[in-house]
């Protein structure tokens, strides 16, 4: 006799159990203050010269907030897109390709943005 237990052992379509569900909640809670901070930073920088923007974005507090925002956001995005892919893409090869592309995209965006913030902070 086959029961749904077999599916549970495989830990769902993405093979990662409920860890992603919980991490989506953790990153959504973290995202609330970080998003508010992003709006404050962007509004404070509107219309300023490049030199002023570089100075403010590179200052420790702003740079740390932006780093936290980006890292939190790309992880949240990664889980969310994975959820969308496993909901709508049922063909195995296509699903794996999508999940892989999702990982490539968020790492590229996250690392590129983090590098830019660090360069603004440390100069050269």
């Amino acid at each position: 006799m086959r029961t749904p237990m077999r599916r549970v052992r495989g830990l769902g379509a993405a093979h990662s159990g409920t860890k992603d569900f919980w991490h989506q909640r953790v990153t959504s809670v973290a995202g609330i203050p970080l998003t508010i901070a992003l709006f404050v930073i962007v509004i404070a920088l509107l219309g300023r010269s490049h030199a002023a923007v570089v100075q403010i974005l590179g200052s420790p507090i702003v740079a740390i907030i932006m780093l936290l925002f980006i890292i939190n956001m790309v992880y949240h995005m990664w889980i969310g897109m994975q959820e969308i892919i496993i909901d709508y893409v049922h063909e195995d090869k296509l699903k794996l390709a999508g999940l892989m592309a999702n990982t490539f995209f968020v790492i590229a965006v996250g690392l590129g943005s983090a590098f830019a913030i660090l360069k603004l902070s440390f100069g050269v």
């Binding site: 980006i70 956001m73 830019a116 913030i117």
Partner: peptide, 14 residues
């Protein structure tokens, strides 16, 4: 999010 990445990378580029 590419808008934010573009913004940060552009600011860092010059």
């Amino acid at each position: 999010v590419l808008l934010i990445a573009w913004w940060l990378i552009a600011a860092a580029s010059g």
